[in-house]
């Protein structure tokens, strides 16, 4: 192989490493992106607040990741992270279809049916999978989710 090609390739290899490093956020910046404050509600449902109830989220939100959380609210909400490249929040505001209905013959169960009007593409630029060996990085990546389903404190998520 030509010496110049070889040199150019070596420079490219080293540059790519530093480029990824420089473009990447720090762990704290990364965590901040997925803090609750960075999610906005796109759909919400009025629900009874008495007694303990259960919400079944029927479809998976593939190819997206979902966090299910209980919080001090009085509605069931579907929230979308505003930091996803491609403006997922705006897209979902226009296109997300969600329906909440009581499961027949049960008193306490609700089914939350979510669907997209047409297929969506999602690329997740993960780091080296081997960091899964370390609890710290597992916890870090668990923070990542494009969607957050929030229910009142007296609700269970299934």
């Amino acid at each position: 192989m030509n010496k110049w090609i070889l040199t150019a390739m070596s420079v490219m290899l080293i540059l790519s490493f530093f480029l990824i490093y420089l473009l990447s956020p720090s762990d704290s910046d990364y965590l901040a992106r997925y803090a609750s404050g960075n999610y906005e509600t796109v759909v919400s449902f009025d629900v009874p607040l008495d007694g303990g109830r259960i919400v079944d989220v029927i479809p998976s939100l593939f190819p997206f990741h979902v966090k299910k959380v209980r919080m001090d609210i009085d509605r069931i909400e579907i929230r979308v992270n505003r930091n996803i490249r491609g403006d997922l929040l705006d897209y979902m505001r226009k296109n997300l279809k969600a329906e909440l209905f009581p499961v027949p013959e049960t008193y306490a169960r609700f089914a939350l049916d979510i669907s997209f009007p047409r297929p969506v593409g999602n690329y997740i630029g993960e780091t080296f999978g081997i960091v899964g060996l370390f609890d710290y990085y597992n916890d870090l990546y668990d923070a990542h989710a494009e969607f957050m389903i929030c229910v009142p404190m007296n609700y269970e998520l299934d």
């Binding site: 490493f17 990824i20 490093y21 473009l23 990447s24 956020p25 720090s26 762990d27 910046d29 990364y30 996803i84 490249r85 491609g86 403006d87 997922l88 897209y91 047409r118 297929p119 969506v120 593409g121 999602n122 690329y123 997740i124 630029g125 993960e126 780091t127 080296f128 999978g129 081997i130 960091v131 060996l133 370390f134 990085y137 870090l140 990546y141 990542h144 494009e146």
Partner: peptide
């Protein structure tokens, strides 16, 4: 490029500086 050409493509950059360095070194 995909994002620029279609309105239904999204992506997330999940690499952090720490995880990249640790991942690279351990890999």
């Amino acid at each position: 490029l995909l994002m620029a050409t279609s309105d239904n493509f999204f992506y997330s950059w999940l690499v952090t500086r720490g995880s990249f360095l640790a991942g690279f070194a351990v890999s």
